[in-house]
Design a protein around this nucleic acid. Sequence first.
DNA 1: CAGCAGGCGGCAC
DNA 2: AGTGCCGCCTGCT
Length: 111
Amino acid sequence: MVSAPLSPSPAATNREAIYLALMTVPAGKVITYGQLASLAGLPGAARLAGSVLCGLPDKTELPWHRVINAQGKISLPVDSSGYKKQMQRLQAEGVQIKNGKISLRIYGYNN
DNA sequence: CAGCAGGCGGCAC
DNA sequence: AGTGCCGCCTGCT
């Protein structure tokens, strides 16, 4: 079992699959792009996840801030507003960020 | 620790 | 309808 590609409702597009996968991530937890893609049924399409999140509107309900790279860090430019926003939200959920790095060992979302 | 190459999907031409 | 280029990545050297 390579983890069920979540099928509560068959996504019309793979992008939608990313959305659904993202919804399954609980607060206080984080997930990597690769893991998210894998969860969406697109193993290896880590960049896909990134592209999708990049296209999300600022008013989105999706917890895009819970998505970080495999290094356990925010993949956004440090001088970007999104970076600060993401970090702020994560901390608000109880995720401790040490020197810009998040402990996947502790907060990593393990389906 | 930093740099290069690889692989997957979306969107534009 | 087909091909090419780009991207909030990942893993290895």
